[in-house]
Amino acid sequence: MTSHIDTQIIDAIVELLDMDDGSSITPDTRIEDDLGLDSGLLLELFMALEERLPALEIDPSELRPEQFSTVQSLSALIASFMKEDVPA
């Protein structure tokens, strides 16, 4: 099951990495080991997500790469940063 935040993350990655579409990205796709996002691109991804999700306020100091590895675990972490409930 793909959540709203999953979709936003996948869309943001497609845009960030200039991919044709998001068909190759699933919740299990690993952010660093499969997609090759380095810390610079990861920061760009966070900022893009802040733009896409107005309720999202990321404190990068609390968001370390070791806390997530896949789209799914990033999604869970992003959900915890949302200021209010978002329809899943």
Partner: peptide, 10 residues
């Protein structure tokens, strides 16, 4: 410190 790049807010 370049280890803190991800933390541009700080």
């Amino acid at each position: 410190n370049h280890a803190d790049f991800a933390n541009s807010t700080a």
